[in-house]
Design a protein around this nucleic acid. Structure first.
Lengths: 232, 232
DNA sequence: CGAGCCACTTGAACACGTTCAAGATGTCGC
DNA sequence: GCGACATCTTGAACGTGTTCAAGTGGCTCG
């Protein structure tokens, strides 16, 4: 269904106060039901009924069931920024800043872990507008990468300056790996993922520092060459 | 639907020659249609009709539409092994062996790139039996990891022996990253992914060799500690 | 105050994956 | 040959996401 043509733009934005209200009502109801029953077991009919509107009305505001998730996505992104703010204002150590940003991201996602898996399913599809690599997601993606740029620039860490242009994106990619782990993490409270962050961040910190080392210069160059090749 | 209880076992294996034949017929038809029209646009009704059987008959042999993909999955795994065989018999250089295994994997997948994306969508769901990390996939997964163990052991490369127990799985993980890139790769013939392999393999080769370096001993330890922590 | 317009709302209808009770087909023991 | 049993095979029916032609309501302009 989504295979041929993924919807490129969301359904119409509301133009009146009444519309805005209905839209919010449907969205809130959907999020509540998703959390209560999970994504798959929440039907569009149930959402409409609980919200007291017709099924077609939900489709007036949201192009598909997936688009309801996209809202959640954007919301989480904004919350991530807000939650990471204090840490970035306080810490100067790179490891602390990175850990802060990553933990903040997981903090925001945690209450939704149960249905984030289904969310992830559709997000994983390359043609889906929900994909973190898609053009439609470029806004939130850039914002997230910016968060890592900020974590980097506000720190006292020293590293090979050649790395600077690409490091934020690499860190974001590592964070995507963490999120991937989190999605699959069945340990209570996703504690395993917390351990992953706490273990991986010092490692990354150390590697970044090592980039100043002479022996590793060729490796750094090789990494950068690879990135440049892939980028065109 | 798959959210609550993912089907743990495939539908009944055929017990008669007739059954085996019907099963094969349905499978071949499905694969043909998947390639022709893509996964989403191929309906179970179409498969049944083209195969000349009733819709319910397909469900007698395959628990769901996803299970049809699982067949493809297993088949590709076996083919990967076969395709990688000659390279592993010929080469002794680690980089050449790794590149051989990875290129062989992509070779096998390439004809199915168009519908592998949809395949990937369901495989990405953590609760899906199709997930490369799932218990149901442990057979193919172990086989794939074994392929990398073989690539490692048959090579002349030297590295920190402490790495040996974990390296095959790490290499497999890197390969999963390559596959992920391939799925998203829209360049003609997925040439970009080939470049990724050719660029990343020498890098991995070099890093593995560097593990013997004194300065990097702490980093190696840190990596191994992290892995051990995550593994329990 | 009325006509026209636009934003919104409705719910029946559609196509799809999936289920299942009923039947058809073969095979084996006697 | 024949009954009994396991192995298939059938297609109508169900629940789902989604569409769309037909409304409904309130606002503006004259």
């Amino acid at each position: 269904m989504t295979e041929q043509t993924a919807p490129t733009t969301a359904a119409g934005e509301p133009a009146t106060a009444r519309g805005e209200q209905t839209r919010q009502l449907i969205l809130d109801t959907a999020m509540r039901l998703f959390r209560e029953r999970g994504y798959a077991r929440t039907t569009m009919r149930a959402i409409a009924q609980e919200a007291g509107v017709a099924v077609g009305n939900a489709y007036y505001y949201f192009g598909s069931k997936e688009h309801l998730i996209q809202e959640f996505y954007a919301h989480a992104q904004a919350e991530h920024r807000a939650t990471a703010g204090p840490v970035l204002a306080r810490e100067t150590d790179l490891a602390a800043r990175l850990a802060g940003v990553m933990h903040a991201g997981i903090d925001v996602l945690t209450p939704s872990h149960s249905f984030a898996a289904s969310f992830f399913k559709t997000a994983a599809e390359p043609t889906s507008p929900l994909s973190p690599f898609s053009a439609e997601s470029s806004g939130p993606r850039e914002a997230a990468i910016g968060l890592f740029a900020e974590a980097l620039d506000g720190s006292t860490a020293r590293f090979d300056p050649e790395l600077r242009p690409h490091l934020p994106e690499l860190l974001w990619l590592a964070y995507m790996g963490v999120v991937l782990h989190w999605v699959y993490d069945r340990s209570p409270g996703q504690a395993r993922t917390r351990e992953l962050i706490d273990g991986a961040v010092p490692l990354v910190d150390r590697l970044v520092g090592l980039s100043r080392l002479r022996v590793l210069r060729p490796v750094t160059r090789q990494v950068l060459d690879l990135i440049r090749t892939l980028r065109h």
